[in-house]
Structure formats: structure tokens, C-alpha cells
Write a protein that binds this DNA or RNA. Structure first.
Lengths: 214, 214, 214, 214
DNA sequence: AATGAATGAGAGTTCATTCAT
DNA sequence: AATGAATGAACTCTCATTCAT
């Protein structure tokens, strides 16, 4: 009675199809943007007829809603790790970078959602709450780091969290992410946070401009 | 007293019309995205027939090119001040914030261009060169600031410039810019750079987390 | 008893629709020329929406290709009889005349294709090969006729075939075909070929200018 | 007081412009057919503005009428030579061939007019009367040739004239005129008429199938 | 659960024509 | 006599959506 696979449970099979369609749409958006999202293409990629797509998703908007869900879950699942020990902030930054590097579509889709949220209140709400959760998570990390004495107590955890989220978000944009700027940006962010550990991808930079105590 | 308006110079009048169309398209993109850009709407907004729009811009693509030009000029003109004394980096950051605040459309359009550049090589080239110029300008500021003793000499001006550009860019995104996050982010950036002149919008908060020497 | 009409075989029904559209386009071209061919009209004539027409023929050009096929087949089917006994050249000439008389659209469409071939290499190729085949068929007839002693041996079968094809082709032109000139022309051609079997449509005019021996 | 040239007479200058426009349209039709005739292009080719074209020719149809006139005059002028001695029929055939060879546009335009006449009664009338005149001229030649003993008395001058005109007309069609078929056709026509003079373009063929004297 | 066929609404683009200057 | 600017009408083509099967 596994809920996945083409097995007994009919409603599971249905969910499979839906997932396949959502993933196809997700890829399409990553590649062509909302502008270039064609339901026919999505259906074709899954090997289905347009009409069948509309059986699963009555309207294009509902399919997009599915994509938003999928992207968010994809994002969150990787971004909100389990334990978060003391200085796992560094791990978090790397995780984001790795995620964007390994699944380049995600950046594109997030960017598209970002923009769409300016016009689509429904998406805006989802995005906002996701970012709020993210912000809170990062802020929590910062506070714990301060409590553990790994960061300067006078930092405004709200402001720093906002800045971190902003920098990480900018990395989804093509212009910033291109030409290896990503690594530059991330490295500098680590320096500012005093969590740069040298190797990463690159050279040992034991400077630590911001953490005089170090 | 240039011949703006329906006055003497005929070629100026033509340029006026073109500008009006470009601005209308610019607004449309800001409001509805590239996805929602309709030439008929643009023409109507200026009070012209579509055929007339095509008289000025043979193709939709050429109109978009006009918009790109306009947005870039809008962006650059405010971003590349003339003199740049020693600590004008702060002024620059504020200028960007003010520009995005006072002309909210600009953020939207830049975001759209940003995304489009992932698929449109022509736009990508323009965006890239603009960002490169921006990066160089900021880096130059940083280097001068270091030379004048206003910043720590060991900073990697390339990395810091990249981070600054990334943060400022992220401010064009709706999610980041909403809910007053912009100010948070900017304030923190200033702190990191050691150029913060106070909390909120302007009040003096001489903390200076990053520039211990100062 | 093939599944014509709205009966069993679904793919046959599809082919029916395609045929109906092609025939409608064929009629439109005959009536208004390529210049006046409007997809909307074609669809309307069959009782379909334009979008549906594009379902069957993705582009106007592909619809035209269908028309070319149809016209050619219409032409060939009647022009390349089965057996061709000795003096069937006469039959061939009459068949062409009858075809053009009974299906006046064909002349118009062929004329249009003729002209279009001056600008459209694709059509030019089709027309050329059709005419070549026709030329060869006629030449073959002539040679057999010579071999059987029904025509003078010294005739240049290539030249005569070219002339015959030219005359028959000219009969598709409105000016030539109008005012009963067709019959005049054909009668004279028969005389030159020595196969004339009578005046007007049928009256016996045993002159036979060309076949003195006969 | 020459009526041509850019001199004194204002109405002559006007006529010049008209002629230039007509000739430009004529060339355009030869190249692109009626289908591809664009008034803007015509005006541009003469170096005028569209609006100016409409000053000379209020409507596109009126411009076309001008082209018809021009083509007809071009055709007639060369086709109806002055003297016509006894066997000038041969000269006539050669003249037509040379005309079509030396001014290839004429064939195209005549073909277009030919087809258009199927839909445009006005053009049909002009074409018809031109062809009638041509037919009569050729018939006159034949009759004189018979009277002078250069042709067989029993020929039906009406039928032969019709056939000649048909063959010559077919030579305006691209498919017939291509691939050197023209010469074949013409040569054979000359043989049938008994006026082949051997060399022409090619080999001496003194056969003369049709001249009983042989 | 799946599909082929059909559609309405609308997109960008073209073109002959007009009008004020 | 000439033009730049403007327009209406029409064209081909696209796409999300629907419906009978």
C-alpha cells in the first residue's frame, strides 16, 4: 500500500500524474518563464493530451498554483535543515548556494514567482510567508549564535537576517549569479558575518574583517 | 527652453511621441510584466492607433528595446553621480533606495529585465554590461575610500563591490522591498561598510560594528 | 463502400475534413486567385472556425501545398490515361479540353500555380516535374505513333511534344479559352498533327494537312 | 517645347512622374505579381512618398490601370510592325520571342493580367480587345500569304491564327518558357507553318512538313 | 481516465488610404 | 507638388478552454 508507484491505490496514481504535470510545468517555467508557459507543451512533455491536463488541473492558474507549491516545498525542504547546531549559519549559506548550483531551475522559478508576486496577490501571500519563515529561521540562528558567544552581542539580528536573506535572494537572479559573482558575494557575506572558513571553494582568507574578537 | 511640446521642431515632436510610447510601455511592463505587455494597450494609453505605434516602432521587439534603453538610462543617470568625494558610497546607497522608492516602476521593470536576460541574449548583454559598469564604479569608490583611510585596507574591493551590487539589486524584488525590509537591509549594509549614519532613516547611531578602528 | 462520409473510421473522417478544406481553398483560389485566398473564408465555407483550420493545416502555406497536390492529382489523373493505343493522342487532346470545360476552376488554379512558380521555387519544382512528365508522355505517344506508321517519321518528337504541351497549357488562360477560341485552337492542332476527325466539335474535315500520305 | 524632359511645361513634368510610377509598378508586378504589389514600394522606388503617389493615382486600382495601359502599349508597339511584306509572319514570331527574351518582365506582367482578367471585367475587356486585334493581324498576314501563294489555300486562316496566338501566348508562362522550351515550341510552330528557315538559333531543318510543295 | 476536434478571444503585423501642413 | 503622421480594416496565427465520445 505504498502511496507512490503505479500500484493499487487509484488516488495515488492520480497524484502521480498531477506531480508529473507540475514538474513539467516547473521545468517549463524555469526554461521559458511564465511568459513562455504553454499548457500544451506541459501536457506533451508528460505524454498527455491537453484535454487530459485540464482534467487534472481545470485551469492554467490551478496548474501554476501547483508549481508554486512544488517550488516552495523544494526550497524550504533544503533550506530549513533539521538540527542547526551552533554555527550552522555557514552551513546554511553553503546549502543555499549548492541548491542553486545543483538545481539551476529553482533559481529561475523563484525569480519568476518573485516578480509575479508583484501582480498576483495569491502568490504574493505565499512568497511573503515563505520569506517570513526564512527570515525568522535565520534570525533564530543568529540569536543562538550570539547566545553561544559566536557573534557580537550588539548586532541587530533582525537587520542582519534581512540582509542575509536579501543577499541569498539576489543570487537567484541571472545577472548576479552569472560570471562567478555568486562566490564573490557569498564569500564577502561570510566575512561580514565572521564565519568565513577559508577553503570553501577557494583560498584561505583568515582575515575576518568584522569579528575583531577573532 | 527646448522645443518640448507641440512646438517648432518637427523631429523633436517625433521624438516626443516615441518617448511617450516608450514610457507607456515601460509603465505597462512595470504593471503587468512582459507577459502582459500589449501593443494595443500601449498605443491606446498614448491615444494612438496601433498602426501608428508600428509607424514609430516597426516591431514589438523594437519597442521593448526602447524600454530597455529608457530603464537603463533612468537607472544609470541616477546611479553614477559626478564627483564622488571620499565617502559618497553612502550617498550612492541612499540614492538607489530613494530612486526605487520614488519610482516604484523602475524596480519592477529592472526585475523583468533581469529575468528576461536569462532567455534573451540581447537583453542579457545589456544587463551584463550595465552591471559590470556598476560594479566597477562601486569598486572604484571603495578603493578611493581605502586610499583616503576611510575603510580598512585589507578589504577585497572586488568582493565587497559584488556584495553591494547584489544587495542593491535584491532591493528591486517585491518580496525584499516590501514590508519595510528595504530599510533594514540597507541599514545593515551600511553597518557592514562602516558608513552607517544612524538608525531608521537618518537618526545618528554611531555603533559601527565593522569599523572598529573608526 | 469506403468509409466516406461521417462513418466508422475516425482517421478517414479527419482526412475528409482536410479534403473539404483543400477543396474549399481550391475553389477560392480559382475564384479569387492566391491574392484573394483568405483562410477565414476557407474555414467558413466548410463551416469551421479558423482555429480549427489551423488544427488541420498549421499554416496557410501548408494549406496551399494541399491545394497544389489536389490540383496536380486532378490534372494528372485525367491526363495520364491507362492504355494509350496507337492514335490515342487525339483522345488525350479531347480529354484535356473536356477536363478544362467541365471543371473550369482547374484552369484558373493551374494558371495561378503557373504564375506563382515564377516566384515560389517549391511550386516551380512541382510544376516543372509535372510538365516534364507530361512532355515525356506525349513524346512517347508520338514516337509510338511514328513506329506504327501513323505519323511522319521525320518529325522531331521532342519539338512536337513541346508544342502540344504549350498549346494545351495556353488553353488554361482565360483569354485564350474564352469566346470559343479553345475549339479553334484544338482543331488546328489536330490538323497539324494529322489526327483531326472532323470540324467543330465533330464534323468530318478529312483535310489532314500534315499527313499527306493519309 | 519638348513634351518630355524636366522642362517648362508643367503638365509634361506631371506626366513624367506618372510614367515613372507606372513603370515602377510594372516592374514590381513582374517581380512579385499582383499579390506582391505594394504601393509603398512603388513610391519608394521612384523616390516619392506614399502620399505623393496617391496624389498622382488616387487609388491602387488606378495605378494598375496605368500599368495595364503601359503593358499593352509595350506589347502592341512591338507586335504590330509597319510594313509586313509577304512572309513577315516569320518575322513576327521571331519578334515576339525576342521581345519576351529581351524584356522578360513583359511576359510576367502579361501572365498576371491574363489571370486577373478572369476576375476583373475591366482588364478582361482590354485583354480581349488586344487579343482580338492580334488575332486579326495574324489572320490578315495568313490571308495575304495565301494570296501570294506562300501558303496552302485550304488553311482556315481563323483557326491557324488562333493557334498561333495561343502558342505565342503560352510562351509568357514560366513553365513553358523555362528550360529552353520556347525555342522548341517556336521551331515546331514554324515547321507547321512551313516558314522555318533552318538556322534560327540552331540546326538546318529543311524538312518543312507542312508545305506540300515538298 | 483520456482524447481528438473545435472554438472564442485576442495577439502582432500589414497596407491602402487620408489629412493637415 | 509633396510629405509625415495617422488610421481602419483586415490578415495570419496562437492559446486556454470545452465537449462529445
Amino acid at each position: 500500500m505504498r502511496p507512490t508507484g503505479r500500484s493499487a491505490d487509484p488516488s495515488a496514481a492520480k497524484e502521480d500524474r498531477r506531480q508529473a504535470l507540475v514538474r513539467a510545468a516547473y521545468n517549463q517555467i524555469a526554461e521559458n518563464g511564465f511568459e513562455g508557459l504553454r499548457t500544451r507543451e506541459v501536457a506533451a512533455e508528460v505524454g498527455l493530451n491537453i484535454a487530459t491536463l485540464h482534467y487534472y488541473f481545470p485551469t492554467k492558474e490551478s496548474l501554476i498554483a501547483g508549481v508554486v507549491d512544488y517550488a516552495m516545498q523544494r526550497f524550504r525542504s533544503t533550506l530549513a535543515p533539521h538540527g542547526f547546531p551552533a554555527d550552522q549559519l555557514a552551513i546554511h549559506l553553503r546549502a543555499v548556494r549548492d541548491l542553486l548550483r545543483d538545481e539551476p531551475q529553482l533559481g529561475g522559478v523563484m525569480g519568476e514567482l518573485e516578480l509575479r508576486s508583484a501582480r498576483d496577490p495569491q502568490i504574493a501571500a505565499i512568497m511573503q510567508s515563505t520569506y517570513d519563515a526564512w527570515h525568522r529561521a535565520v534570525r533564530g540562528l543568529l540569536q543562538r549564535a550570539v547566545r553561544h558567544g559566536h557573534m557580537r552581542p550588539e548586532l541587530d539580528s533582525d537587520d542582519v537576517a534581512a540582509a542575509i536573506v536579501a543577499v541569498l535572494t539576489s543570487m537567484t537572479l541571472p545577472t548576479v549569479s552569472s560570471a562567478g559573482r555568486t562566490d564573490r558575494v557569498l564569500r564577502q557575506l561570510e566575512r561580514w558575518l565572521g564565519i568565513d572558513s577559508g577553503p570553501g571553494q577557494d583560498q584561505p582568507t583568515p582575515t575576518g574583517q568584522n569579528m575583531p574578537g577573532k
